[in-house]
Nucleic acid binder design. Sequence first.
RNA 1: UGGCCCGUAGUGUAACGGUAGCACCCCAGUUUUUGGUACUGGUAGUCCAGGUUCAAAUCCUGGCGGGCCAGCCA
Length: 562
Amino acid sequence: MTVAEPQSADFIRTIIANDTKANKWGGRVVTRFPPEPNGQLHIGHAMSICLNFGVAAEFGGRCHLRFDDTNPVKEETRYVEAIKTDIRWLGWDWGEHEYYASDYFDALYQWALQLIKAGKAFIDDQSPDQIRETRGTLTSPGIDSPYRNRGIEENLNLFDRMKSGDFSEGACVLRAKIDMGSPNLNLRDPVMYRILHTPHHRTGDKWCIYPMYDFTHGQSDSIETVTHSLCDTGYADHRPLYDWYLDELDVYHPQQIEFARRNLTYTVMSKRKLNALVEGDHVAGWDDPRMPTLSGLRRRGYTPESIREFCRRIGVAKRESRDDISLLEHCLREDLNKRAPRVMGVLQPLKVIIDNYPEDRVESLDAINNPEDPSAGTRQVPFSRELFIERNDFREDAPRKFFRLAPGREVRLRYAYFITCTDVLKDDSGNVVEVHCIYDPATRGGDSPDGRKVKGTIHWVSAQHALDAQVRAYEHLFSAPDPENAPEGQDYTSNLNPESLMVYESCKIEPSVADSTPGYRMQFERQGYFCVDPDSEPGKLVFNRTVGLRDSWAKVQQKSKP
RNA sequence: UGGCCCGUAGUGUAACGGUAGCACCCCAGUUUUUGGUACUGGUAGUCCAGGUUCAAAUCCUGGCGGGCCAGCCA
């Protein structure tokens, strides 16, 4: 366990604290995170990961990473690797405790035999359709299978032949003998084993029968002497079955506790829908920076610390909820504000010429790397006669509350000089293409000796020293807080935000970041936090906008519009 | 219509049966060489109806509302 941040007591931590105090498990706390390797982890999983690993760390216990790999037709090794990468990146360490449900196939098989011998399980020859039809409905009981009372020897023999590959898929299954009349569907003689002539990513072709989730999970917890088996509320109805298997088998019996799954505004979370976004080319892949996957968030520039803090703040509860993505973004900015070095970068360049500045002069100016962290030091930024500023930092028709550059207005160039706009050049269609200014040599560094104040400070980049770059700016993937809430007859894809990706070419960045490598995070002053994308190459920089700075000017403009 | 779980500001989350608090969002202001950060203040809440009690967000009953469950998926 590498990360143990303080956490207020939620209902699960309260239960564990009480158990520990009562010495219920001999003081032990063992949890587990049990992903199925059939897809990538997302922000919803992060909450479960932080809960399981966090609780273990706080109580001096341990958390196992266990792959729930009982369905070879859906699982792949590449997902095992991706999941391990994501959990490590988040900051958690399972040490030696990396397990696979498939490692327990032999034990599970023996347990199945035990239940058959006890007359608690039988081979059912009914077809999948027949089983479904005789299961009953939510309001009516099911009916017993005609094979329910087969003799133990016959069941043993049939199960052995299932294992030997004598039957085709779907020909028969092993079912637990519980109660077809139970109001809990999970107890209506649930399937324990099915035939699957598919090689498994770890056991190869050793098996052609595979245990179902319910017959696997509890026993796996038992083998690992898990104390608290935390899962989402979708499994609450399975708890009686979890308990039934463990009781009938008379083995070590962990406690299953359910917590509510979470949703996030402006995104979707299910593996199915995430996969559909990838397959439908709505995003570039599982790690598209707009995706809520951990790989997507990582590429976007999110820090693992911010995600952990987010999970800490949303807490744990039993009611399903939708967390505001603004809280996640807040946690991100809070973290990056303290750590990200500042740099000047212009997304939409507008040329500025300082007419009274010598043509061949270049100055090197001091710039603070991070005002929140003096130890980050300073750097030198080149200044010259021709600069680029942000296009929206200049307006010909500046309203009174506009503090930036405009004809006749004076502003401060960050860490450089006060400049005053004297002239504007336009193209044939009337677009401003060049702004002329004069500077005040006495304001070098950004302070005026006469105490004169300017309302605005803008960022800039020396034209001859600027690095060209591409910047990818992202907005929420969906334009509705709950994408599921779609117009009649349409689905969540109708809520996809057409402007979720905005690509800026020919951006101008100060030279200090020339050698930064993929993953490097920084703040472009006054704009937001950015990171170098893996697509970046020397001489052809590509940045992702991780998240913008809060922008109160945008709010002012927004209010004066409608 | 069966079973299980759950209802506290807009959102999320606290409160031995005893002053409904915190965070995000939003609004106003102070500071500021980032219209950032920081700081100050503000708006806003116990689903409804009964009952128990000196006292109910908390306990009981009944409504209402939401979620999950009818894979040989997990």
